[in-house]
Amino acid sequence: MRNIIFNRDRHDCQTLTEEDPCLALTGPSRAVGMNEHVTIEAELKVKGAAKSEDRYFILEAKAVPLNWGGRDVEFSGTRGTILKISLGELHNCVEATIFFRVVGGTWPAGLQGHFAASTAEPPNKEVILIAFGCDDGESIRGDSNMTHLRHVVSVQDSGELIVSVRAWRDGQAVIDQEEVRLKAKLSGRSFGSLNVCSCHVGVLVAWSRIRPMCDDLVPEVSRRLCHS
């Protein structure tokens, strides 16, 4: 039942700075159903010159109860450091699996930025799906599909998914930004597009229901929807 939200080994470690202190999350890969308490584990190490010199930075587990209320989960580490995990609570959700593909034009050289997803309803937190740097070959594969940090987000079944792109050069002011809004569905697909300067990027969203982990905790009408 583990749902990995960050996973990097010492050969692919991430450098954290005061300017960029956030971990680059790769998940969750599916929605986390809160039918009962959920345990969050954090195991982070500081990389040494050799593997034998690696030291634990955070090593802790915490149970998040049903009435947590969307507050941050905090883990205490060495030398007074704190790891905060921000949670958002959504009810009656569907899963949106998002894909990007270059469908026209030329990807601009030397462009930096990201594709992101958020919801029109609270908590309105933006999730980075693709981060692209100065090397355009890092984000676009040979089949024109784009390489994701993560694919899946949760959306209220009566809400909207907002998919956006923001681009800049050399860390300067944003030179291009655009968004597309897609109405949530219980199943099926939605299509949209985003323009990144001279490049036309297609957006495909595959919708699916979230099956409750314990059928007797949801109404009969909801169980029929999940099994249909």
Results as ranks from 00 to 15, higher is better:
52 S>C: 12
199 C>V: 15
83 L>Q: 01
43 E>H: 09
41 E>K: 14
37 H>Y: 13
59 L>I: 01
122 P>I: 01
10 R>D: 13
209 R>K: 11
130 I>V: 15
216 D>Y: 15
188 G>V: 08
5 I>E: 05
35 N>W: 14
163 V>I: 13
151 H>Q: 12
81 T>V: 08
133 G>M: 06
63 A>L: 01
178 E>N: 09
91 H>P: 00
44 L>P: 02
57 F>R: 06
148 H>E: 00
51 K>M: 02
182 L>N: 04
9 D>A: 11
4 I>Q: 10
41 E>F: 14
198 S>A: 15
105 G>E: 07
143 D>N: 15
197 C>S: 03
11 H>C: 06
81 T>E: 11
196 V>M: 08
197 C>F: 02
76 S>Y: 14
165 V>H: 02
144 S>A: 10
187 S>V: 02
83 L>S: 10
141 R>D: 13
116 A>P: 00
104 G>A: 08
50 A>G: 04
146 M>G: 00
21 P>S: 12
32 V>T: 08
102 V>P: 00
112 Q>R: 15
185 K>W: 08
124 N>V: 02
224 R>Y: 06
225 L>G: 08
34 M>T: 06
79 R>Q: 15
208 S>F: 06
41 E>D: 11
211 R>T: 12
27 G>Q: 05
26 T>N: 02
151 H>W: 04
100 F>T: 01
102 V>K: 08
177 Q>G: 04
202 G>Q: 09
86 S>A: 01
211 R>E: 14
166 R>S: 15
54 D>R: 05
194 L>C: 07
200 H>G: 07
10 R>C: 15
169 R>M: 15
30 R>V: 12
31 A>P: 00
143 D>E: 10
28 P>R: 08
86 S>W: 13
138 E>T: 03
134 C>T: 09
175 I>S: 02
90 L>W: 01
164 S>V: 01
15 T>G: 00
79 R>M: 09
127 V>G: 00
174 V>M: 11
76 S>D: 14
176 D>Q: 14
156 Q>E: 13
104 G>F: 13
14 Q>F: 12
142 G>N: 10
125 K>W: 13
177 Q>N: 13
167 A>L: 01
155 V>F: 03
156 Q>W: 07
30 R>P: 03
44 L>R: 03
220 E>P: 05
178 E>L: 14
24 A>G: 01
63 A>Y: 09
66 L>D: 05
85 I>H: 15
132 F>W: 04
9 D>T: 11
170 D>T: 10
55 R>T: 10
69 G>N: 07
27 G>D: 03
82 I>L: 15
24 A>V: 13
224 R>T: 05
64 V>L: 07
209 R>Q: 11
73 V>E: 10
36 E>P: 00
96 A>S: 11
37 H>L: 12
92 N>C: 13
52 S>N: 07
